[in-house]
Design a protein around this nucleic acid. Structure first.
Lengths: 129, 129
DNA sequence: CGGTATCCCCAGTGATACTG
DNA sequence: CAGTATCACTGGGGATACCG
């Protein structure tokens, strides 16, 4: 990732000393759900387990390659499980783990915020329901 | 808007007849705070207004160019305001708007989730008030 | 059905230097 | 202090084709 020393022999070596404190928790959380489609994927999975093609249809314009990749990353991050049923035709189900379900308030919060502030051009006049 | 039973594990109706209409709210919200540093920037601004260099120091390893860009995008998204004081040396202050402050539960939620699930093994003494 | 395997492109970031 | 201006690089994500 970092520390690539390609070309430029005189280049100053950048030191990625991560000395910033605990606020990185925000960052690391964002790294998990921050993929282009991850939020939407996780949101859909809040309703329960889904098959690959279901997710694909639900998310919309996403390629297989990208969906596979994002799902594998989410799996690697431990927010969902991937279950392969050895049947034919193949059947793979994705389901949130407890870690993933713990994102529920965040995901619904994001959706509520997005609805209120980004999709409806409601002026921020402090009107709260 | 038919709520997709947020939080409840009821997987009765999971046929997303709406392809990706309102769920994009999650996506559009993520687009606002999903930048590499935006979450951290916003989180720091929860404490109050900050100057450019303060943010830079707080965030850590971020270049001026990138910080400027992310701040401008956040400003364009209406989550913060940029106030230039015509003094010398220059002084610019950044402050969350109401729209930005509405992200508070999400940001603190992200931080709590990140602390608990992604870096709890290191030093979970993030019991900041 | 649920993937891999390639190839490609460009948006996002970083490094560095200069300025009002 | 708070930016711009340039240049370079990477890697995330898309398009397409093929496979078990």
């Amino acid at each position: 990732m970092e520390d690539r020393n390609t070309g430029a022999p005189g280049r100053a070596q950048r030191f990625t000393s991560y000395s910033h404190s605990k606020n990185c928790a925000v960052e690391s959380a964002l790294e998990v759900i921050g993929g282009k489609w991850k939020g939407v994927i996780l949101f859909h999975l809040l309703s329960g387990e889904m098959r690959f093609s279901e997710i694909r249809r639900a998310v919309g314009a996403i390629t297989q390659r990208t969906l596979t990749k994002q799902l594998r990353e989410l799996e690697a991050d431990g927010v969902l499980t991937r279950t392969v049923y050895p049947v034919v035709p193949p059947k793979v189900e994705y389901r949130l783990t407890e870690k993933g379900e713990a994102l529920t308030p965040i995901l619904t919060g994001l959706r509520a915020w997005g609805l209120r502030y980004t999709l409806s051009e409601t002026d921020a006049t402090g009107e709260e329901a």
